[in-house]
Nucleic acid binder design. Sequence first.
DNA 1: CAGTGGTCTAGACCACACT
DNA 2: GTGTGGTCTAGACCACTGC
Lengths: 269, 269
Amino acid sequence: MATLQPSPLINATSTSLMGADASGLVNLTPAFSPLYQQIKGLILQSLQSGEWKPGEAIPSEMDLAARYRVSQGTVRKAIDELSAENLVVRRQGKGTFVATHAEQQVQYRFLKLQPDSGNVQSEGPAERTIIDCKRLRASAEVARALSLRSGDPVLQVRRVLAFSGVPTILEDLWLPGSPFKGLTAERLSGYHGPMYALFETEFGVRMVRADETIRAVNPDAEQARLLLVSITSPLLSVERVAYTYNDTPMELRRGLYRTDTHHYRNALS
Amino acid sequence: MATLQPSPLINATSTSLMGADASGLVNLTPAFSPLYQQIKGLILQSLQSGEWKPGEAIPSEMDLAARYRVSQGTVRKAIDELSAENLVVRRQGKGTFVATHAEQQVQYRFLKLQPDSGNVQSEGPAERTIIDCKRLRASAEVARALSLRSGDPVLQVRRVLAFSGVPTILEDLWLPGSPFKGLTAERLSGYHGPMYALFETEFGVRMVRADETIRAVNPDAEQARLLLVSITSPLLSVERVAYTYNDTPMELRRGLYRTDTHHYRNALS
DNA sequence: CAGTGGTCTAGACCACACT
DNA sequence: GTGTGGTCTAGACCACTGC
């Protein structure tokens, strides 16, 4: 747990010092970024490298300020942004913690489907059924989404989520083969809790961001069978690409949602 | 443009002063809020009351600090939050401006439908056709969404948006009657630009936030006719409630989106 | 050039959580 | 009590905009 300053920080000015800056940070005017952004980048590196793991506390603001030789306020601003991006969670009086999908509060953060009446809590947990889990070669489409090459090994998972016995979500997932080596249907079935939490603890992969593309479609015969609907039923198609740190895509997920008792909720601001 | 301090600000402590606080702000410990939150509330009031109109600059941080008798940093934190909520826009070197739907950059901020290939810009503006615009009494459902009473006067608008000649969006809107007195089909047809921009300039109603409920549905006969699709085509149903300041609902909008050449895009974080 | 928002620091004190 | 994040202040300087 070395706390050496990893590399010289670059300040925004060419010649003058700022405030009571004690570390003599200097910079050429062009190609620069604010100090707190650089600090944010350094913290991000430590998050990526696994120096602090999901659920753990990161060093206090004072410690980080000492480590990077900047003021507490600068560290604070860096952490503020990380907190706004849901990468860390601040808890007054306790510390700042690496965000995790395993917490009760933010479980299923990426799942926007809600029951029409009542809330997500009142509904109880989804009943999960793994339909399939196999290793195969990436198609061109999957490869593009995951930034792989066509033919690279990928893992494909198909599962159904049911609420109160009603199958509501049919999902196909594609995961890059190497980071998820060792993932099996048994592993998935045996785990109770969010899938992204399992990814964190078992494979060290933390999803931080995702993009969804939504369409209205009709299911094919097998999809209709698994969701117990007719092939003429309109369904929501939700294609998600989920990213780890560094905007690295780590999952392609195609969901089919029944929206007769549930709806996709989105807040615009 | 009076700059009197509107009301005594309440500080977080009971007896001691904070820092070099010169205004002697005092408070009982229970029932409090941070100073910058109170400042934010005061700025919000001025935004609501129309003291500063969309597109205009609000006073500088220094001016506001003097007006409210707090430090610049406290005003800054208040404005930071307003900026994060898209209520104001900061422009370095120029000032802080009341956000507006009329700006080129953030036009159609609430419209998440995008062409499958290319971006929103490359597509060019939508061709708009007002189908209907009439005054009527709020149904129970509409009344609930708009926080009105059943039977209260509302305005209903139906329109179609087409891209490259292809009708893609069919929208029904309901607006509370009193704030939008004087809105007619001609007014809407004659206006080129975002509808929410017209609401700002003509009716002083600024939409700041919205919730969308999304489902997959089939159109009825008339909807299918207007969108040039069959009644078996799956369509995206997007029901939106848009809010002004103070979480006051000011619009109910039901959209039917064709998703054969477009898709609903959502970023999760 | 002056004025604006943006960055950085330093120090004080508050609210909260644990021990 | 000690340590954490949270608030508030004051002052300095930087970066950008427009006169």
